[in-house]
Simulated assay, not measured.
Amino acid sequence: MIEGHCDPDFENVGRVFRANFLERGEQGAAVAVYRDGRLVVDMWGGWADAAKTRPWTSDTIICMMSVGKGMAALCVWMLVDRGLIDIDRPVAHYWPGFGQAGKEGITVATLIAGKAGLLYADHAPDGAGYDWATMIDALERQEPEWAPGKDHAYHSATAGYLLGELVRRVDGRTVDRFLAEEVSGPLHADYGYGAAWADPDRVADVLPNCNSHTFVQTRDQSTKLGRAWRMRPQSDDHYNDPRMRSGLMPSTNGHGNARSVARIYAALAQGGTLDGVRLVSPETIDRMRAETWFGTCAMTDRTFRYAHGFFLNEPLMSPMGTNPRAFGHPGAGGALGFADPENRIAFSYSPSLMCEGGGLGERCKALSDAVYA
């Protein structure tokens, strides 16, 4: 059931991918690695549904959860690179309605670094997450949890809206359209928000894990993550809900596969350009991955190492090989995409079965480690 190819120099990745199915409970997944702009690992296997009736194929896609926040951050940085956004200017300069409830002085840099304190959308009705206008109105009225810049946290539920609306205010296009027209389309990468653009038969089911900290806490409104995700419509199977596959919730509903996400990060590992498609400059990449904080996240109480809209390599929570300057974005349950510009490597993993705990799990870490072994 394992298919695809693996260059001889990376055969250890292939061995680990097979071992994940035999030894670590993998159900369905894909892994991809680019080096020097070339796809050197492209493997997939297992099943695309819980009943094991649909094999995972070369073009299967799946919800990769918060991997989509990194894509939203990339869209913002592309506008910075083009001179359309100055990260030191207040967000309200581009989005006037944002400048209320104590947010007047929040700069783009503070926002994208996770220091704005906008963890919640308390003014949104329960279940309003797919109503963009309602969510933006709620965030305009939201009071920061702390004086902007004083503390830091992973903006688990709100980052996609905040960065996505900034893109819309500056460029005029919604963030899903911008991503499709400026990133995924030109790079021929099979990735986008929701999955309405894909044949439904290509979409694999996410298999929840009751031992996943994110899965448990987001369903419990007494927790900070539960308060943040209160705006997500209630469903017995919200990861595979039709609204998840058709709406726009860029904090969580980006759909794609390892090959497509690795291809996007391959451009960032190559100085911002791949196969003639330019996303950003090398100088902008260095600004994107400059460390802004390393410590306990005020949302999750986990230890993260954070840049500007991206996570930095950290062995426990965001394992990205051996280069401390590698950067990317994880997704709840174990999905990951990252770029390592110094080694010109890009990596992605897209599983169906969510991992246990609060990190990326042993399956993802084993694959990431294998790339460098």
Rank of each mutant, 00 (worst) to 15 (best):
V91D: 09
V91E: 05
H5S: 15
G337K: 01
Q27N: 09
N343T: 11
L22C: 07
T218R: 12
R259W: 05
V261F: 05
C6Y: 02
D275Y: 04
C297E: 09
S156I: 02
W95T: 09
G309H: 12
T110H: 08
L353N: 01
D36S: 01
G83S: 08
C63R: 13
N240Q: 01
L274T: 00
P148G: 05
E362C: 13
W44Q: 09
L166W: 01
R230T: 04
D275L: 01
C297M: 11
E181M: 10
P242A: 04
A198Y: 11
A326N: 14
L139M: 14
P55N: 07
R177Y: 06
N313V: 06
R325F: 07
W44P: 05
P233E: 08
R169C: 09
R363H: 06
M354P: 07
S352C: 10
W146A: 03
P186V: 10
Q221V: 15
A29K: 10
E181K: 04
V13A: 05
C63Y: 03
L162G: 00
M244K: 10
A147D: 11
L367W: 00
P233D: 10
G337P: 01
A180I: 12
A180D: 15
S352P: 06
R289Y: 09
M231Q: 14
T107K: 04
Q142K: 03
Y306I: 03
R232C: 15
E314Q: 13
H308G: 08
G254V: 03
G4V: 01
R344Y: 02
F10W: 14
D88L: 12
L353R: 15
G357L: 04
L268A: 04
P319A: 05
D151F: 08
L84S: 15
Y306C: 10
Y193R: 08
D42A: 14
L187Y: 09
R232K: 07
A307C: 00
I345R: 04
W95G: 15
D131P: 06
D369P: 04
G271D: 03
I264S: 02
R305T: 07
G160A: 06
W293F: 06
A138G: 00
L84D: 11
L84G: 07
D122Y: 15
I87P: 15
Y265V: 03
G172P: 04
Y306M: 10
